[in-house]
Design a protein around this nucleic acid. Structure first.
Lengths: 326, 326
DNA sequence: CTGAAAGCGCTAACAG
DNA sequence: CTGTTAGCGCTTTCAG
């Protein structure tokens, strides 16, 4: 039932090398070629990618590590990476780690002997650097990471300057004359801290108090904003490290009949397409997911195919995308 | 640099079979075991998954075909599938097809010789049935599909009764005394048509006119609703085949100061968590993504591991999740 | 408990 | 242009 190259060769009355040559588009005498083609299409034979992989030392597969593919940022990154790499014949294995070290370890262990390279999306994966044995197991395979750098031989980092993005956005609100501006911080990972830092910096420069609210639940924007309103009834601006939190904030503000964009400005982070769906539409910091994902994909491909590929850091800048909420 | 089982055996002064046994947790004399362990951890050796795969005829990998991982429905499905299957040591390859036949073919061709099974998410993949040679290439591998059935030997279908879901939702609005109820249809695939059918059925039973608006752009809810309002200024209900469209509808309605949930009810489809983010929150039809995805994953696993596994269809029913918009 | 050897399905010299 | 043969790195009999 499962047919292999020997079966094809036998039935086409030739040798496996000739079949292999045919498969790899090398020269084969027309008559022989015809016979091979017939047998192949008769059985709809497909050469085993695994056997091929064993010879080539490559399955043409990469692993993409994310926290949770359900979150827009990761879904987008995974999409653009897959889209780019599939052009070159690479397949993408998704690893949902939920940010848990044990899960990360498990996946790294499983895929490291199977993939040509790994992309880590998000600063959380910096945690890996604390574990020497994990670093060891991926020490010689090409690694690309966004917003962080993995400490192995062949590692390249793609940075997006989140901190400056938030800093600029905060400035933007301050320049509108707003004073009571709150920041909603999501999680405590490196990126989250940097973002909050951007906010604090801008506020400090304007001699305004930093009002940071913290959450680990991405859909809690509504609830957090309730707290904000309890503390600061006349809040003039809310900036958040995640679009979804900002969307929740808009809902909370509107439920109190606070005019979003006027009484209180709201700014999100990511500029996912969901920003179009709130009323008013959400002004957000575009952190260049597509650009950075494509850069990650291309970098990884180069590192896989060229031992000498550049390992220089790449940095992108955020861009504030003004819409209705600020 | 890249070390293999021979290297380990040599340095541990034993044979590769013994190393292999150790690797597969079979009995090995304690002293030998100790030596092997030392060498393995010295080099941080990981057995090649590819070579293993060649012997086992399995890479413990499945492919999940979606239209676009960026859409919540697919991201959720992929998440739950990966989550379930990873418990059993399977990895998930994501194939973003954008619903294009050529892309579907390309991916099927590439992965069919590499994966243990395939899951197709969404009725669009019914299209495959029109192409005999594609069916041929996956004829013997386990296939699970949602909202559709692939015509191959080892195929199992998971259905969610979308039509009834929409029918019930429409009824729900009708029972509220609403008469001018519009439906926004997304794409023309089998599921989309069935959903629209559910709406039409309910409207017909109530002797109300079916008002169907059509779009192929998932973020066009706002624009479509502008059209609806142009045609029916006093529309009393909008039902949509996708949450995102309904979210856009809410925005359009509110921009016209139409009270959503009272003047005009809005119902979405999927009941993704984004429904919590609009104001008012979106009432939506829960089409049981988690349940069906888990069922798909489990079914596929069974089919992979047991030649005789059940191939009976599985059907889930939708559930209307009432929130503020209806 | 252990080692030798065959084999998984393919590619790539090498000799013809 | 073609066939033989030796791997690729494992697992799995089969003897011992």
């Amino acid at each position: 039932m499962k047919i292999n190259i020997y079966d094809i060769a036998r039935e086409a009355d030739t040798s496996i090398s000739t079949v292999s040559r045919y498969l790899n588009k090398k020269n084969v005498r027309p008559e022989t070629k015809k016979r091979i083609e017939e047998v192949i299409s008769k059985y709809n034979y497909r050469p085993s990618a695994i056997a091929k992989g064993l010879v080539a030392h490559s399955m043409k597969t990469v692993a993409v590590f994310v926290v949770d593919i359900r979150m827009p940022h990761y879904a987008n990154a995974a999409y653009y990476i897959d889209n780019e790499l599939s052009k070159y014949g690479y397949r993408t294995i998704i690893c949902n780690t939920m940010g848990e070290l044990s899960t990360i370890f498990k996946y790294v262990d499983e895929v490291s002997s199977q993939v040509d390279g790994i992309i880590f999306i998000g600063s959380i994966f910096n945690e890996i650097n604390r574990f020497k044995d994990i670093l060891q197991t991926i020490n010689y395979i090409p690694i690309v990471s966004t917003n962080g750098k993995i400490d192995v031989k062949r590692s390249r980092a793609i940075y997006v300057d989140d901190q400056k993005g938030i800093y600029d956005a905060t400035k933007y609100l301050i320049n509108q004359g707003r004073k009571t501006i709150c920041y909603i911080q999501y999680t405590n990972n490196v990126s989250a801290l940097k973002k909050a830092e951007g906010y604090k910096l801008a506020m400090a420069e304007a001699k305004l108090p930093a009002l940071v609210y913290h959450t680990n639940e991405i859909f809690s924007g509504y609830d957090i904003t309730k707290n904000i309103l309890f503390d600061y009834r006349f809040v003039e601006g809310i900036i958040s490290g995640e679009d979804l939190l900002a969307m929740g904030a808009i809902r909370a503000l509107r439920s109190q009949n606070i005019e979003v964009g006027k009484d209180c400005a709201v700014i999100g982070f990511n500029d996912s397409r969901y920003c179009e769906l709130t009323s008013p539409t959400l002004t957000a910091i575009d952190n260049k997911i597509e650009e950075s994902a494509v850069a990650a994909a291309l970098s990884l491909k180069e590192m896989i195919e060229d031992e000498e590929a550049s390992l220089d850091d790449i940095t992108f800048n955020c861009e504030l995308k003004i819409k209705e909420s600020a």
